[in-house]
Amino acid sequence: MHEMGVAMQIIEIAQASIPADMADARVARVNLKVGKLSAIVADSLRFCFEVVARETPLAGAELHIEEVPVQARCNACRHEWTIDQPAFACPDCKSGDITLLSGRELDIESLELAEEDA
């Protein structure tokens, strides 16, 4: 439900990341990593991004979303596994003392700028 604000942040960070000597460049694609545990709906985010990107160097840019699985490590037995169900205890030793290694991401990885002469 806060995808509009997230889309605005993406545009702000992306615009600030374009090097000064490429200020006129058009952004073709934004590569985003979104953890499966983050409170983001990819389709809503794409829709909001498209709307907010209008009249910015990101107009028409593709928002590429890489979903990051929820990886966990058990602090008791060191077992590592992927959490794909709503259960957060170690499947091996049943300990609930776990560390999430991934799944909370909401990161801009990179931008792809269209070559002017391309």
Binding site: S17, P19, A25, R29, E109, S110, L111, E112, L113
Partner: peptide, 8 residues
Amino acid sequence: TREIKVVR
């Protein structure tokens, strides 16, 4: 395209 790493 030219890729610019952002990682933020």
